[in-house]
Computed example of a mutant assay.
Amino acid sequence: MAIDWKGVMPAVTTKFTKDDTLDLKMFEININAQLKAGVHGIILGGTLGEASTLTDDEKRTLVKTTVDIVKDKVPVIINIAEQTTKGAIEAAKKAKEDGASGLMMLPPMRYKAGDRETVMYFKEVAKSTDLPIMVYNNPVDYKIEVSLDMFEELLVLDNIQAVKESTRDISNITRIKNRFGDRLKILSGVDTLALESLLMGADGWVAGLVDAFPEETVAIYELQKAGRIKEAIAIYRWFLPLLELDINPKLVQNIKLAEVATGIGTEYVRPPRLPLVGDERKKVLEIIETGLKTRPQLPKYKNIELVD
């Protein structure tokens, strides 16, 4: 399935049972809520998906299950976060076999690769597959930045097509557009900078709080796209305290609590992560409860026409 690299693409959480096995029933409930809201793709196995704790078999099960659920309505993308080039190539091969439409790729894990090594890593994986690739550029959390000069080298490969822009530097969107035009699609990877990024020319939003609030997230995207900026800003201002739960070391626990509150998830996480307790839990719940009490009434945001 072709990927346009635009719109809202949830970085979905992985659902677990209390016995620490995959909860595919609740996972399906959440995926269907995303589809009903009008998302444009599903991303599996990212930070929110607790990728570092998943076995290869579990990742493959998630891809196959999601492909079966979405039935070609939207593309299914799996994140690759490997320590070796060989491991990343094997992960890409499995993704293709399991029906994934594309890949999101982090630089090498653990080892802080230099620029030349990072470029070679992405190139070797890209040459090994025909799946389209979105580079996940998050130097804040993963300590390696993919610079514009590095993208210049990477873009000689046709299947490197997009970047999940998580540098936290809004002006980087303009730099990318000025240098590469539409050759490199841009998806904002930071919830608290998403609307600003879209207004500066980003093509989409890899979202986190969408896992609990899919309709509000898609509404913001569709309204700004249609030129109804004031309406998008109003929803975004309501959303911001919730979106800030995504820029926190406990983002997985935070967002899973929000999913519980909206009825489309559980709070089970895989150790060493543990559910929130005490004052930390109380504070997060207060933010969620306030958001629910003041939840805005959404306009009919699907299939809206561009404002002249």
Rank of each mutant, 00 (worst) to 15 (best):
F213G: 13
G208V: 12
W205P: 02
R237H: 12
I255V: 15
A219S: 06
G263L: 06
V260F: 00
K225T: 15
L245A: 05
L242P: 10
N248S: 14
L223C: 14
L193D: 13
P214M: 11
V218A: 02
A219I: 08
L195C: 05
F239Q: 02
L242V: 14
L251T: 15
D211F: 00
L242C: 10
L199T: 09
R237C: 01
V210G: 14
Y221P: 07
G227W: 01
L198Y: 00
G204H: 11
V269P: 06
W238E: 08
E216A: 12
K230L: 06
G227A: 01
Q224Y: 11
W238G: 11
I235G: 04
I247G: 08
I264A: 02
A202H: 07
I220G: 05
W238A: 02
P272E: 07
E196W: 08
L240E: 10
L245G: 07
L240C: 04
L195G: 11
L251F: 15
D211H: 04
G263A: 08
T266G: 15
P272Y: 04
L240M: 13
K250R: 11
L209C: 11
E231W: 00
E215T: 14
P249Q: 08
N254S: 10
L251H: 15
I255H: 01
V260S: 01
I220K: 11
L199I: 10
L193F: 10
